[in-house]
Structures are given as C-alpha cells and as structure tokens.
C-alpha cells in the first residue's frame, strides 16, 4: 500500500515537488520529471531517441541527422534556450527557482483562502511551512464552572440579551471555532490566550484581507467580550441600527451556511452547481425510450 495522500498538501509539500524548468509542470517524483523531460523536451523528432539534456540532443542532432537544434521543444517561450544545461531539477538558475517558489506560495495561499471561504473551516496550516495542524485550544472546565455559566446564561436570556454569537444559534456552524458559550467574565481567562491570534492568515498573505467583509461578523469566532446582559455590539454599528444589523447578520450567516452546504454536496456526489446547467437528452424515470416509441402509434401492435 502506498501512503495515503493528504487531501490538501501543505505548502512545504508543494514546494518540495520536482518541477520542469521548461514547462513549469510539477511531478510527484524526480524520476517522473526526468522521464517527462526526456519525452517532451529532449526527444529527437527524427528518430525518437530520448536524450538526457538539451545539449545532448543538440549534439545528437548535429552528428546523426546533420541538423542544428535551435530551441527546446514544448518549452515556454522564455525557456527555450539551449544554453542552460538542465537535468531534472539541476541547473535551474536561482532567480527562476525563486520565482517558481513565489508562485507556488501565493497560489497555495490563494487556494487555501478560497477553500476556507467555501467551507467555512478555519485555515489550518496558517503558518504553512510547518505543515502542522494548529491545535485546538483545550479548555479546562469544571462542573461548577459549567453550572455557573448556565446560571449566567439564563440570567442573560431573562434580561433579554440573547448572545447572538455565543452558543446555540442555529446559524452558527459557519463560525469556525468550536462554539464555546462565550460569556465574558465567567470564562477563565487563562484558558483563552491563543485565540485572538488564532487561525488568522499569515500577515504576509496578500489574499487574506478582501475576504473579511465587515458584514461577515459571525465568522469572527470571538467578538470582543462585553458586559453580560447586553447583546454584543458589532464594532462599527451604532446602537440604533442594532436590530437591523442583527437581521442582516443572520441572513448573511444563513446564506454562508447554504454556500457551505452547496460546496459540500458538490464534493460528495454529482456537482450540484453543474447540475443546473445539464441537459439530459432522455430523462424518463419509469418508461424506457422503447416503450415511448411504441406509444408513438406507428409501431403499436394490437394483439
């Protein structure tokens, strides 16, 4: 058995993949890269002989077929030069390596961000290169603590201030963190040190910013703690507009939740997105084409 691939490779795994200087394709394995280069870029079009390098092919063409090789076949326009001796990953100029790594990195974060947006899951390996999952913060809780929080929670409700971002809201699932009931004071502060920094994208990531629209408050796992009995106010919303903004939050959250659902369904079975743009040429579900043909009349037979 081969090792099961991680569904989404980490940045390091992507950076480690061998890739072809000439066409920027990447491969699982150095051997495959080399055979790719021999087949695509270093193959003689006269006799199909596969050489190891562009230089080798040039010499071969010269000596065997009396022809001059001018460029590397199937290469990107700026990589057709014969002067650079490439074999596998060897010989690639440093600046090209840097450029490639940069592209892989930015693409990696873009994909990650897109995935986080679609699924609502937190960005896992925010500090990508580590390849480690950010561990969930373990919350130590005692029975007393929980009981106390229940009492406070009930008081909260009695006071009319339902925590819109705490526990139990049906639209919550998009919230990326485990839905800890969030009640400012009662939470032992010591257990929450890592949360503010939590799963936010690395500061260097240029793609992080535009994703967080101000209305998407509910995705913010932990709004700033507020005194109990008062609904938490999303920053920037004046008190008067509170009700309206709550409605807006709920509807946008519900929409997000639906998006997530769609995305998941798309992954599981036939892609539901595509489904809309599909036309079945024949779409009966109990009657076969032949039975319909019989009913046309022309073929009917009266026994």
């Amino acid at each position: 058995m081969t090792k099961r691939k991680r569904q989404y490779p980490t940045l390091q795994q992507k950076l480690d993949r061998p890739w072809c200087y000439y066409c920027e394709r990447d491969f699982d394995d150095l051997k495959i890269l080399i055979s790719h280069q021999k087949a695509k870029h270093f193959k003689c079009d006269k006799c199909n002989r596969r050489l190891n390098t562009a230089g080798g092919l040039s010499v071969h063409m010269n000596q065997v077929h009396k022809e001059n090789l001018t460029k590397v076949e199937n290469a990107n326009p700026d990589r057709q030069s014969l002067d650079i001796e490439i074999f596998g990953m060897e010989g690639i100029p440093a600046e090209v390596v840097d450029q490639h790594n940069q592209e892989v990195t930015s693409k990696h974060f873009a994909e990650e961000q897109e995935r986080a947006r679609l699924t609502g899951n937190p960005v896992h390996d925010a500090f990508g290169a580590g390849g480690q999952l950010a561990k969930k913060q373990k919350v130590e809780e005692t029975i007393e603590g929980i009981k106390k929080r229940i009492v406070e929670f009930k008081e909260n409700i009695a006071n009319g201030g339902m925590q819109m971002n705490g526990s139990g809201g049906p639209v919550q699932p998009i919230g990326s963190q485990p839905p800890l009931p969030h009640l400012g004071h009662s939470q032992p502060t010591a257990s929450l040190p890592a949360i503010p920094g939590g799963p936010s994208p690395p500061p260097a990531n240029p793609f992080a910013a535009p994703q967080q629209a101000p209305q998407q408050q509910p995705q913010h796992p932990f709004p700033p703690a507020v005194p109990q009995a008062l609904p938490p106010r999303p920053p920037g919303h004046p008190n008067a507009a509170l009700v309206a903004s709550v409605d807006e939050l709920i509807s946008s959250a519900a929409k997000d939740a639906k998006d997530v659902k769609d995305a998941k369904e798309g992954k599981a079975g036939g892609s539901s997105k595509k489904e809309k743009n599909i036309r079945l040429v024949f779409s009966g579900d109990t009657e076969s084409p032949e039975e319909r043909m019989v009913r046309l009349g022309r073929f009917e037979f009266a026994a």
């Binding site: 595509k274 743009n277 599909i278 036309r279 084409p289």
Partner: peptide, 8 residues
C-alpha cells in the same frame, strides 16, 4: 455553450 449535454 457551457451547457453539459448528457446522452443515454
């Protein structure tokens, strides 16, 4: 034209 035509 962007539509998937599916044949039996």
């Amino acid at each position: 034209d962007g539509q998937d035509i599916v044949y039996p």
